[in-house]
Nucleic acid binder design. Structure first.
Lengths: 186, 186
DNA sequence: TCGTTGTTGAAACAGTCGTACCATATACAC
DNA sequence: GTGTATATGGTACGACTGTTTCAACAACGA
């Protein structure tokens, strides 16, 4: 009895809120401008999510979900040379379409430096790459339990993303990745 | 005539404000708590710095100045093996005493992603390393104009700093740096 | 039509923010 | 002393923040 609930509304709002955060960032996020951009009201955002903190958590989870979906099956088994595999990953992650995700990624990391309690699974977001990268670069790893090589590969990628997002010098970043691929392959 | 100006006060306030920002971060910085911690008043902060924006700019300049001083003469010429040089830089920059600088560094980068206009010389902060690192690792560079090797070295360091500040796993980070040193040396 | 449950708007609350205004206190030259 | 410049304290303004409260409206079963 009574009016039926409409869970789709929350989903729709979450999707659009995630778009908004990816476009505008987390730092200055505020309910009233967000609600205006989403054609809703702060009242409804709190009605659907309970509090701003829970809304942000839901948005970050949704952003991670989108990234995971886009990544799925994107890193095939070890086919081609080390250079080709590394270039493939780099081309995908450094593409302009990924820039909003990369920005949010760096923003969450920076905020986590002073408020780690807000991001309990942040460390896992790093170690999660070990299995995938360990499989992709098995031939240059020292063994199946090697976490050092995946760590180094991700460090190079994150460090070059840092450089690229700061200087915008894609040519230099691409060449630095190629140089790393040469070193890794020998 | 009139009361003499006291420029030392501004200097003292700037030094303590920089300590405060290094400890508490840039994100939530607010004049009233800052003034309280510095035994002064928001009134005096604006009197000395004009606006919050200028205060932040002065603090960031001071933080850079401190980092530069601590770095001066810290990277001697190419003595020892590549491993030793790389380890020396890494040990210095990843030391616990440097953590506040590293955090501020990442925080500024993240904020610059959405407000690049506030950090006009951010790209230069990256390219400034080329001369120093090019000299330190001349033997593994392809030439005196090689910017790719310094780019890669800094990317590895920044990427490992990212990992270290997130996971706190120093052992893994150290080993990844050693692995990179091996690759670079061959 | 009535009761019930889900949805929504408008307004207000208590707080913080950066900043401006006004008065006053301090330290010097004369 | 007077004049003058710097240095402060106190206070209030207007704009913002996340959140709450109260009321009304909408869609359903009985």
């Amino acid at each position: 009895m009574g009016r039926p609930a409409d869970p789709a509304r929350r989903e729709r709002t979450l999707a659009r809120a995630t778009d908004y955060v990816l476009a505008h960032g987390l730092a200055g996020l505020s309910l009233r401008p967000l609600a205006t951009a989403l054609d809703t009201s702060p009242r409804m955002l709190l009605y659907d999510f309970g509090s701003k903190q829970e809304l942000v958590a839901a948005v970050l989870a949704e952003a991670r979900r989108r990234g995971a979906v886009r990544l799925a099956g994107r890193l095939p088994a070890a086919t081609g040379s080390v250079q080709e595999r590394l270039r493939g990953i780099w081309a995908w992650i450094s593409a302009d379409e990924r820039a909003p995700f990369v920005r949010l990624f760096f923003e969450v990391h920076a905020d986590g430096l002073h408020h780690p309690e807000n991001y309990p699974d942040q460390g896992q977001a790093i170690t999660d790459w070990f299995d995938t990268l360990g499989a992709t670069f098995r031939d240059v790893c020292t063994g199946p339990e090697d976490t050092v090589t995946p760590t180094l590969v991700m460090a190079v990628i994150r460090g070059l993303l840092f450089d690229l997002t700061t200087t915008g010098d894609r040519h230099r970043a691409d060449r630095a990745l190629d140089r790393f691929a040469e070193l890794l392959d020998r």
